[in-house]
Design a protein around this nucleic acid. Sequence first.
DNA 1: AATAACTTTCAATTTATTTTGAAAGTTTAA
DNA 2: TTAAACTTTCAAAATAAATTGAAAGTTATT
Lengths: 168, 168
Amino acid sequence: MKYNEAKDKFIQAWGTLGSNWGISRSMAQVHALLLISPDSLSAEEIMEDLKISRGNANMNIRDLIDWGLVFKEQIPGERKEFFYAEKDIWKVAKQIIKERRKREIEPVLGLLEDLKKVEGNKTDKKHKAFIDTVTNLEAVVDKADFALTRAIKLDENALVGVLFKLFK
Amino acid sequence: MKYNEAKDKFIQAWGTLGSNWGISRSMAQVHALLLISPDSLSAEEIMEDLKISRGNANMNIRDLIDWGLVFKEQIPGERKEFFYAEKDIWKVAKQIIKERRKREIEPVLGLLEDLKKVEGNKTDKKHKAFIDTVTNLEAVVDKADFALTRAIKLDENALVGVLFKLFK
DNA sequence: AATAACTTTCAATTTATTTTGAAAGTTTAA
DNA sequence: TTAAACTTTCAAAATAAATTGAAAGTTATT
C-alpha cells in the first residue's frame, strides 16, 4: 500500500467512525488529517487536501479547537493561522471523554434527578416501573461518571497498570 | 410533574441522547418507551404511543432485537407479537458495549493493523508521522478494548468494588 | 382453500444535517 | 488610511438520513 492510499483510507475511516458516534464526517476528517500531519497546516491546505469549502474547513477547525483537540499557531513571517492536533492519542481520548462527559452525562444526570420527582401514586404499575427505570439508570450513569472522571486523571501507563491488577 | 409529562421528557431526552451517539432518534425512543413499560407492548401500541408509522416501528423494533436490547414474546390467545426490553440497565450497558465493540472496535483494529504496513522510506517525515499516529492509536484502542472486554464480564457490584479500590 | 390477522419491505417523500461560496468582517502592513 | 491578506458568517443548495404508507408477504384460523 502506498502512502497516499493509506492516508486516504485513514481519513475516510476516521470520518465514518466519527459519523457513527455523532461527530460530523468532515470534522473527523479534518482531525484525522491533522493527526497525521507532521507540520501545522493552514485552512487553505486543509481545504485543498480534503476538497472541502473554506466555510466548512473554518467551521470544523473551530469546533475541533472548542473540543480542545486542535490548536492554533502563528508561524513567523506568515499572516495566516496554522493548525495542529494533539498527537498523543491517550490525551486525545481523555479530552474527548472530558468533553462528552460535560456535554452529555451532566445534563442527563440533571434530568434523571428531576424525573424521579414525578408525582403519582406508588401503587400504579406504570408509575412504579418509571421510577424503577429512572433510578436504576441514574445509578449506572453515576457509576460510569465516577469511573470516567477518575480514569481521565490517570496517565496512560497508570491506567494500564491498574487495569491489569483489576482484571487479572 | 405529572407522569405523562415525565414520560414524554424521558422519551424525548433518550431520543436526543441517542442521536448524539449515532443511534437513530426513533430507535432510542422505542427503546425508552419499552424501558419504562411494565408490560410488553405490541407494534400497534408502540406506533400509537410514539406516533410513528408501522414501517418505522417495525424497523426499529427489529434493530433493537438485533442489538439484543429487546425481546419478542407471544401472549397466549393473541396472534400478534409483543415486545419488552431488558430492564437491568447494567445489563443494557454491557450489551451496548459488546455490540459497539464488535461493530466498531474490531474493524478499526483490523484497519490500523493494515495501515501500519504502508510502504515507503522511514526517513520521510510524513511517512514517519503517519506510522507514529497509527501505532499510538492502535495501542490506545487495544487498551480500551482490553478494559471493555473485561469490564463487561463483571457484574455491576463487582465492577463498583473494583473501581473503588482502584481510584481510592 | 379462502380469509383474516399480522409483519415486512421498499420506493417515494419528508425532514435533518452538512456543505457551499460569496459577502461581510477583521487584522496587518505599507 | 488604504489595500491586501486572511477569517468568519450564514442563507441557500446539496446531501444524507429517517419516515411514511401502501402493497406484498407470511402465518394462523375457519
